[in-house]
Design a protein around this nucleic acid. Sequence first.
RNA 1: GGAGCCGUGGUGCAGCGGUUUAGCAUAUCGGCCUGUCAAGCCGAAGAUCGCGGGUUCAAAUCCCGUCGGCUCCGCCA
Length: 586
Amino acid sequence: MKRTHRTTELDLQNVGEKVILNGWINGRRDHGGLIFIDLRDRFGLIQIVFSPEVDQEAFHLAEQVRNEYVIAVKGKVCRRPQETENPSLKTGKIEVYVEKMEVLSAARTPPFYIENDIEVDENLRLKYRYLDLRRPEMRDNLILRHRVIKIMRDFLDKNGFLEIETPMLTKSSPEGARDYLVPSRVHPGQFYALPQSPQIFKQLLMVAGMEQYFQIARCFRDEDLRADRQPEFTQLDMEMSFIDEEDIFTLVEQLVQDIFGQGIGRRVDIPFPRIAYDEAMKKYGSDKPDLRFGLEIQDITAIVKDVDFKVFSAAVQAGGVVRAINAKTCASFTRREIDDLGKMAVQNGARGMAWIVVTENELKSPIAKFFSPEKMQELLAALKAQPGDLLLFAADQPEVVARVLGNLRLELGKRLKLVDENILNFIWVVDFPLLEYDQEEKRYVAVHHPFTSPQVTDYALLDTNPGAVKARAYDLILNGTEIGGGSIRIHRRDWQEKMFSLLNISPEEAEDKFGYLLEAFQYGTPPHGGIAFGIDRLLMIMAGRQSIRDVMAFPKTQSASCPMTEAPSPVSPKQLRELALKIREK
RNA sequence: GGAGCCGUGGUGCAGCGGUUUAGCAUAUCGGCCUGUCAAGCCGAAGAUCGCGGGUUCAAAUCCCGUCGGCUCCGCCA
């Protein structure tokens, strides 16, 4: 019995028709003399009815079937008696009276409920992911994923882009994340790496004259996992020739408008506001600021540089800064709540967190005694402090203070429920630094990646003050999450060599690791640039989820394993021998 | 590498030194039931409390270790 309709294709207009339906049993209500079954397929639910008056055999079979059995039924579409209509079902005005039923497949009782909003250990969900994905919310996430990727393809196709695949087995490169390695059988002792991104290939496609490229690209990074980080994830990777930043912004803004408009029916206003990296760090303590609420960080370095409070003045002496957040209305926080915030500050690298509780009559604070009344007035005025406010301070190097207060700001935003979950706040963060100094490695490392072009106006600084050079890089931020990032690239061999030398990569190593790119640049390379979107993160936000695992069909656990397949797993001695590999005892 | 939370019938939770023969809800199984859609009513079965060790007259409960899940820091060009 092959189906004639999908469940949700039936409506009042089909009343009287004989139809065949296939699907899973979502629920069964046995009234003794009458049995109702909710039949589920990918599209929805419909109620089917078994009555001995319609067919004895089908009725008795219906007494025996259970949830998640796969069945085929044949019957007549009927209008439901008025008082039994179910407005919460798309097919709630009708039902099918079954004359004939076949069990296509029986089912064991599932280990958890096949329904929305379950609270089950995630391990169990992942072990039985094929059951988890039957749950409507998970099914809908995958449908959304399909739709969004389709919108991306359609949009880019319409705009002249070519979808081109690049290798998954490629060359390991220094810089960036830890590579996943694949041993070569043909070349014993040598390895491929899975791509962290198709970066160099897409640049070579520009050299090849493809002009506008995109790819729905799987990327691999062997780093520790988070709610929004998986070892393999998917990017919309794009690259264009003969363009500048403005072309990319415009195109991406239109793309995002399509994605949200056609994907989930949300209007997105363009163009997106832009904020410079330096300003974002100073005001919001983050290079991916969440601007859905205020609570801005304020710099008070100038005011406190000479105070008796050594933590502040010493930090300034050492080239650091002192900044503060005025947590409006938080004077009511208990000592314990304030201590919790302090712990958080320490966890983020602060040596401590100073605070002042402002009330009608007094200031409660461990540090107030270090300030003269005049200084205190100046400080309170600068922070626009009023009775009822809680002031939080951090003093250290600028990066540390930014991180500490940035995270306190997010925590306060959460606690005070300042975030309107219905807002879609897009911003471009621009003017990133090109390089930052890595204390551990004692060298500069690329903030974005080594192929990012410096801003032309800063080119002279490369030799004198590399840390001050800005990059032609940009990130797209949505609600405090980085969903995309890119740059205008270096397209000249000499500039790229210069960049490598700044990164302390020797000419020999540059030749060894990136020689093919340097060589390619000598054969006529168009100026080019691009951007890549984290599709999983984007979908996570669109679907209102807290983890990208919920928008991936088969994700891994935090320890990067798969409870269903039990990957990773040992391999046979034969396989190891073929690869010339030996496992070392720990 | 580090910090925190969690692990008790299939599932979700309660119990946190002895009054527990480990409680509740739901699922499961059986019976009754012709308009339910979280169906209802009656009944039954089902867990040695993640694993290992220790403390104690006595451990699901306290301690140590370990495994697994989640969140976070480091890490993620």
